[in-house]
Write a protein that binds this DNA or RNA. Sequence first.
DNA 1: CTTTCCCAGGAAAGCGCTTACCTGGGGAGG
DNA 2: CCTCCCCAGGTAAGCGCTTTCCTGGGAAAG
Lengths: 342, 342
Amino acid sequence: MISGVATLDDVARRAGVSTATASRIINGSSKPVSAALRDRVEAAVADLHYVPNAHARQLARSERTAVGVVVHDVSDPYFAEITRGLQRVATTDGRLVIICNTYRDPARELDYVELLRAHQVAAMVLAGSGYHDAGFARALRGKLRAYELTGGRVAVIGRHDRTGDAVVPDNEAGGYLAGEHLYALGHRDVGVIAGPRNLTTTTDRLTGVRRAARSHHRPPPKVAYADFDRDSGARATADLLAAHPRLTAIAALNDSMAVGALAHLRGVDRRISVIGFDDMPIARDVTPALTTIRLPLADMGALAMSLALSPPSPHPRVERVPAELIARESTFPLDATLSVRP
Amino acid sequence: MISGVATLDDVARRAGVSTATASRIINGSSKPVSAALRDRVEAAVADLHYVPNAHARQLARSERTAVGVVVHDVSDPYFAEITRGLQRVATTDGRLVIICNTYRDPARELDYVELLRAHQVAAMVLAGSGYHDAGFARALRGKLRAYELTGGRVAVIGRHDRTGDAVVPDNEAGGYLAGEHLYALGHRDVGVIAGPRNLTTTTDRLTGVRRAARSHHRPPPKVAYADFDRDSGARATADLLAAHPRLTAIAALNDSMAVGALAHLRGVDRRISVIGFDDMPIARDVTPALTTIRLPLADMGALAMSLALSPPSPHPRVERVPAELIARESTFPLDATLSVRP
DNA sequence: CTTTCCCAGGAAAGCGCTTACCTGGGGAGG
DNA sequence: CCTCCCCAGGTAAGCGCTTTCCTGGGAAAG
């Protein structure tokens, strides 16, 4: 009863049994125990408000029970959605999940991987990683490899230069779908609001848009870089429009930035098509309702967690997730755009 | 080196020192150690990819380091915002935060409190609790009390029948503000889209709206109950309008439901004022931009975490957080409403 | 009334780490 | 050249729990 916290010893002493017996009763061991002792131990547990020390138990059992998740930021709707899926399957499996926010800081990401390993997690899933930085990539690969060598399981969401289980959304195809949609509507001058340059999500989606431009025999779209959030999207839209007044359509590489673009456009009274990416819940509630490329984020999270919790397979499993066009009201034919300008 | 995981023993053996020395070097203890040994130990750590077992360390040090957070659901924007604030101060304090989602299941909430206690967290903060259920409340109080008796700190966000540190938003005043705004605009028939009946958040806000009705000598507003999410809000709006065709204004008790209301209204072509609650990021991006009652959610989270991390005070500290009206475009005078109906 | 077997319950050895305490050998002082 | 002191480094005792192995006594069998 050091520092006021009741221990198994306290319980055993109070019930007049050995710690072995108390432990068996508390854990519902299969070993038979007389009803009298059971009652006494249970009474002691209740009286002392005893709760077993999870660390001591973990140490003694030396089995890994929790799982770790490292993402950019759970508060961000994109990751919130992924996390929802992750949690669902982790909880179903009776596991505690430890969530770590990196805020896109590579150093922090490395630290968290180590911290999770120190906490003996059974598995970890990484999302929103995948920076274009050779040094970081090597360090991360090293840490993950070390973790896997000791029996840890890891699954990654998104493209990664690492071989291992992964869930990878088809961002390139999604980007193509977005561009294709715009060019097919007759737009000739398309702008792109991109995310941070060093993320593969950005480059993959952008590559897709560019491919669409090529296949329609158009020059590469103009690109402005932003931060995947609403306000930076609004700013980038303003910049892009100022620099290229002839644009009639904008592909934002995620919905948050698309919403920002819409907000900016509302202010300047220009009728420009906007397409987003991800199909976040907000997409259908803005006006005009946002045309976007849907990714089944929650499912991706769930899938990644099941991969991470399943026994390792000799060949890394890579689940490709297709993107899908959701046409709503924020995109329209070039004709419609022009007819409005008198 | 059981099961492939390197232990301190392995490191010490490889470096040819005792575990005590290895431990001192790894932890940067103040005790002086020769440079030669230091190098050897550091090399061994690197070679073996050694990471100290957090559970063993925690057990040996028996100091509490992590903190726990129990909320309804981190993916929900309301709690995401609160969590963002919480994390900020916890991380600044160098603490691991364990997030638990209850999905409004009281049993799960109780379990999580126990689990966090088992994990020896230094503090926990509860948000989105506060059900009207005497049995649950008693059980929760008991568990929290037991935890505090052993030196644990707890802070609560929202009204609670428990005495202890808390940050409580002034939901009643906010509700009044919402109602007052609507009645002052000339509306005579106001409807309320409420959240789950058993939450104090719902009842407090509702009480406020009712008070506004009384002070304007109007009968109590008609109420439809929903679940604090968008779709239930849309459904409740439909029901309410069907039952009371003369309504000209709706107060939704959170923004998600207000957005649902707006979505429904868009379909039925009726010009009705809608006010929300919380001022979530989405509020300014829907059309019409949502008038709402702002609560500084991230700050509330931060405040709660600082309370929880500060030394206990003899008198429980209760921080009241004021609500503020943010007028945007979704509410307008009754005249405007009527003039549109030909 | 013995002997054998069985089983409820206890003793004790760890799990991996930290740390209070002890030890031995070298440098300084006599 | 001998003491004494000092300090780098080691020894070992836990931290709170689980679990293997052992024990003793009662029931069953002779």
